Amino acid sequence: MIELTVDAAGLARSRFVVSPLHEVASTLLPWGLRPGPDADPWVTRARRVLRRARLPLLSELALDGGGYVPDFLSPHPAGPSPTVEEELERVRSTPPERVLGELEALRDGRPCNGLDGAELPPEVRRAMGRGGRYVALRAAEELRRYWELAFAPHWTDAKAALDSEVDRCAGVLARHGADGMFNSLHPGIRWAAGALRVDSRFTVGIAAPLVIVVPSLVAGAPGVTVDPVRGGRRPPMVSYPVRDRPATPAPASAELARLLGPTRAGLLSALARPASTTQLAARHFLSTATVSYHLGVLHQAGLVARSRSGRTVLYRRTAAGTRLSAIR
């Protein structure tokens, strides 16, 4: 078990993050290598891409068993919802000494080439020979290609599901406090007496200045990422699998399309979970102005309602909209 002791000030600074590169790097871990039967289909497709595409550095860093994947591949995000380009730039700008230090940690983190950590994989060794700066640039380029091939087509829906989970946690926090919120994340994560306990095969106790919480659609179990560099100051990141994933909405029926028109019927059917105008526009390949117009019509008809979440306006189906969308 990993125990993170957090004082009141640290608890106040703790935050949630939706991180695209965290999802990418998670597919290099055992749960990404062998997705469970309930994993999103794009996770399985991502693993096929990694095997078939020419991504030699990432392929060697992927784990077939337990162990450690270098943290610079999924840097600690500065904000709550960084873009993939922002995170890739942070990978490129990783200090060379940190890159090499984290790769050296592989010797202790897992067996390499069957030699009990005596040697690093050949592609990793060759890249390290050209310096930490080269490794960072090479890793960022392979991550970008991996992202474009396997993740970008699915990220809009994936991010909407992760944002929805963060909104759920915010509601639990407001109603039941921090202990209720942490205890709602996963059965393997528990908060009690000022400590966050995460099930693990390792036994570690850490005094954490704060905790970064990362919901994931890829992770198969809770995990804790700690700074592998001795004396490092990065706060721990706790990741956990999102359990109550919204079901993929069924397409609009022909009858509903005849009644409302195909665009409005498609938007109403897509609102099985709350979404913004921008999210709906990306999913349906429409302009935001077109989506906004049709949502306005649905809102006037009482079929959708809207509410504000931060700076974003989210739309959801009303009870009448749900009944109407069930027409087949």
Rank of each mutant, 00 (worst) to 15 (best):
G223Y: 04
S239D: 07
G231Y: 02
P222M: 08
P209I: 02
P246Y: 00
A207G: 11
I206S: 05
V218K: 03
I206G: 10
R234D: 06
P215I: 10
D244P: 00
G231L: 09
R233A: 15
P235Y: 06
V213T: 04
T225M: 05
R230T: 10
A208Y: 00
S239C: 01
D227L: 01
A208Q: 07
S216I: 04
V238D: 05
P209E: 14
A208W: 02
A219L: 09
A221D: 00
P236I: 12
I206H: 11
G220I: 15
S216E: 01
V218I: 01
P215E: 10
P222D: 00
V213K: 10
P222S: 08
R243V: 12
G232T: 14
M237F: 05
R245D: 11
V214N: 02
P222I: 09
T225E: 12
R233H: 11
P209D: 15
L217N: 03
R230P: 02
R243E: 05
P246S: 13
A221S: 08
I206D: 06
R243D: 03
V238C: 00
P236E: 01
V238E: 03
A247H: 04
L210T: 11
A207E: 05
V238H: 09
M237V: 14
A208E: 00
V211T: 09
A208H: 08
A207C: 12
A247M: 08
V211P: 06
P236N: 03
V226W: 04
D244F: 08
V226Q: 01
D227G: 02
V226S: 10
R245S: 13
A247F: 07
A247Q: 13
D227A: 03
R234E: 10
V226P: 02
P241K: 10
V224C: 05
V213L: 12
V242L: 13
G231N: 12
R230I: 13
S216R: 08
L210R: 14
V224G: 01
R233W: 10
A219W: 03
L217A: 04
A219G: 06
R245L: 14
A208D: 08
A221W: 09
L210E: 15
Y240W: 14
V238L: 14
G223S: 12
V226E: 11
S239F: 09
L217I: 12
V229I: 15
P215R: 10
P228K: 02
A219V: 08
D227Y: 03
V218Q: 09
V213Y: 04
G223M: 04
D227V: 11
V226H: 07
T225R: 15
I206V: 15
V226F: 07
I206L: 13
A207I: 01
R233I: 12
D244M: 09
A208S: 14
V224R: 04
A207S: 15
S239Q: 13
P215V: 13
V238A: 05
V224F: 04
V211W: 00
L217F: 09
V229N: 03
P228M: 10
V214T: 14
G231D: 12
P228N: 12
P228L: 13
A208V: 13
V218E: 00
P241A: 03
V211Y: 00
R233N: 11
V218C: 06
P222G: 07
V242A: 13
L210S: 15
A221C: 00
R230L: 09
V226C: 05
T225A: 03
